[in-house]
């Protein structure tokens, strides 16, 4: 395996392929600002939950840096994301719409985001990726486990590259995001990938 491109993103810093990028504002507004400045052609972004916005913006920045045509249908790329809090931010917001019996109006638009794997689907749809998409909820950041899921996805001979993400957000002001474009051919084995993930996570 080989890491072709990488991004690390927290509320305090954003780094793309080792280069620090400027961020403005805080919380979800930071994601909105990045969307407006770097993407801007996908109004559905504003309907997404926090996890969706985080994954979408991170994937856009990462994929824009890849020297390859975008939005061309392909089956050889998978999307494999993990986190700890699943869709907790959306779950809480949805809960607010159903917690008061006198004001009981369950929001369909919030409900659809009460599954964490919606973000991988959003990214696959946006980029016309027809490979595997999966979202794994882990007890904590576990690089060996993540690397194992990446290696498992490469068991499919069609899969030549993967968008791999740790997209954790516990509320609208706190998130950790690592995103990597990993190619099948390269010098890293599963443990090498895990060690690299560990180093990246430590510097988040």
């Amino acid at each position: 395996m080989r890491i072709k491109k990488w991004l690390s993103f927290s509320p305090d810093s954003l780094s793309l392929n080792g280069e620090t990028l400027g961020v403005v504002g805080g919380g979800v507004e930071m994601l909105h600002e990045l969307y407006r400045r770097k993407v801007g052609d996908y109004p559905k972004f504003f309907k997404m939950d926090m996890l969706g916005k985080l994954g979408f913006v991170a994937s856009e920045l990462l994929l824009q840096s890849e020297d390859a045509p975008r939005f061309v249908p392909r089956e050889d790329r998978s999307v494999v994301f993990c986190n700890r809090s699943a869709s907790l931010v959306a779950d809480r917001r949805y809960q607010e719409t159903i917690s008061d019996a006198d004001n009981y109006y369950p929001s369909p638009a919030l409900f659809v985001y009460t599954l964490p794997n919606i973000v991988t689907g959003e990214i696959a749809i946006r980029n016309k990726y027809y490979g595997e998409t999966s979202f794994v909820v882990l007890e904590k950041f576990d690089p060996e486990q993540i690397a194992m899921h990446v290696a498992a996805a490469f068991q499919d001979p069609v899969c030549q590259s993967q968008l791999v993400g740790w997209t954790e957000c516990s509320d609208e002001s706190h998130w950790q995001c690592l995103m990597l474009l990993v190619e099948r051919e390269g010098e890293l084995d599963r443990h090498g990938l895990a060690a690299t993930l560990e180093r990246m996570f430590t510097s988040l």
């Binding site: 109006y105 369950p106 929001s107 369909p108 638009a109 659809v112």
Partner: peptide, 12 residues
Amino acid sequence: IDALELIVMMER
């Protein structure tokens, strides 16, 4: 999904 949200909005 927007259609469902409009239905909720009309009720509310």
